[in-house]
């Protein structure tokens, strides 16, 4: 497939926490890095994120978590698989304790980013994951 479309990334927060500084900064940075960013306010429900990813044909979903909302990410992964979106790459950023990080990676999360990570590193990962997804999907339409 032609690579004309820049990476399309959903930047979202699921669960109850509302602290959205991280997600806004990341969204703005990815935009400035030339990507198409679908930004949602906090408190998204998992079903809504799946529908969003479906309709937007997103390459990557970035979930920001400050409190403990990352504990819902395994449920998101299940819901994506159930909707046939196993190709969509999920990354998580925020305060994620090490043991939870293992849990998320086992659930299929591609990368976990912690506070202090360079935004450029996130952008690079998104580009790479987008390439992975698109080559995975090549010719399957």
């Amino acid at each position: 497939m032609a690579e004309r479309r820049p990476p399309k990334v959903i930047v979202t927060k699921i669960g109850f926490d509302g602290h959205d500084r991280g997600s806004r900064v990341v969204a703005a940075y990815l935009r400035d890095a030339g990507m198409e960013v679908v930004y949602t306010p906090p408190w998204q429900e998992i079903g809504a994120v799946v529908k969003l990813a479906t309709e937007e044909d997103a390459d990557v979903i970035g979930v920001s978590s400050l409190a403990t909302d990352h504990l819902l990410v395994p449920k998101l992964m299940d819901a994506l698989r159930a909707a046939g979106l196993e190709d969509v790459q999920v990354i998580v950023g925020g305060i994620v304790p090490p043991k939870d990080e293992r849990l998320l990676l086992e659930a299929g999360v591609a990368r976990v980013f912690h506070p202090g990570v360079a935004l450029g590193e996130i952008a690079e990962a998104v580009r790479m994951l987008t390439r992975d997804r698109r080559s995975l999907l090549e010719g399957t339409l």
Binding site: R31, D32, A33, G34, E36, V37, Y39, L52
Partner: peptide, 15 residues
């Protein structure tokens, strides 16, 4: 709109 500089965009209307 896309940014004329980076080509990136925040697709915020659906919010």
């Amino acid at each position: 709109p896309s940014s004329p500089v980076s080509g990136g965009a925040v697709l915020g209307d659906r919010v």
